[in-house]
């Protein structure tokens, strides 16, 4: 996967040299990079690995979801703070994840901290059981479980496409 990115950079640098301008021009570099993307897109099956930009797009999507969850959860918590007579009962539940490596579990824990109405209390020493505290167990538990599924699939897309 990194080989494809390095090759793309190499094509961009080559393009800058072939243009033979007096100084380094950033627009030349960008056009070279775009041409490199096209070339590598058509050649990527010879590398035996998926096209590297797919992974980059998955990362952008992960970042977007991160932001979206931050906004919605902040709005929810502000509502719960400012309208104290809304009744909620805090509680704890566990979730067992399919993810394996340390990076994946860390990313999932970061995302869960920012999901509406959930905070990760502890991760079991084996690393696959999350203990999650919910602001309003009855209401948010199904929502949290549903969003965990989405996060898991996107994190998997990023780490092993």
């Amino acid at each position: 996967m990194p080989v494809q990115f390095l090759l793309n950079l190499l094509i961009a640098v080559l393009w800058v040299f072939l243009k033979d301008a007096d100084t380094f021009e950033f627009p030349d570099f960008v056009t070279g990079f775009l041409i490199g993307i096209v070339i590598i897109f058509f050649m990527h099956r010879f590398f035996g690995t998926p096209f590297y930009l797919i992974r980059a797009f998955a990362m952008v999507r992960l970042l977007w979801i991160f932001n979206y969850e931050l906004w919605t959860s902040s709005l929810l918590i502000m509502k719960q703070i400012l309208l104290p007579n809304t009744s909620f009962e805090p509680g704890v539940f566990t979730y067992e994840t399919k993810l394996k490596t340390d990076w994946e579990i860390t990313a999932l824990a970061l995302l869960l901290m920012l999901t509406p109405g959930s905070v990760v209390l502890r991760i079991s020493p084996s690393g696959n059981e999350f203990l999650i505290h919910a602001m309003d167990v009855k209401e948010t538990k199904p929502l949290v479980l549903k969003s965990i599924q989405v996060y898991e699939s996107i994190i998997l897309e990023v780490t092993r496409p």
Binding site: L70, S73, S74, I77, M78, P90, G117, V119, H133
Partner: peptide
């Protein structure tokens, strides 16, 4: 929210999300 919410966990909800 950190001042008014009842216990540590619910306070940490306020402390993590909206202050970020």
């Amino acid at each position: 929210g950190i001042i008014t919410l009842p216990d540590v966990y619910t306070r940490s909800h306020a402390g993590t999300k909206s202050s970020t």
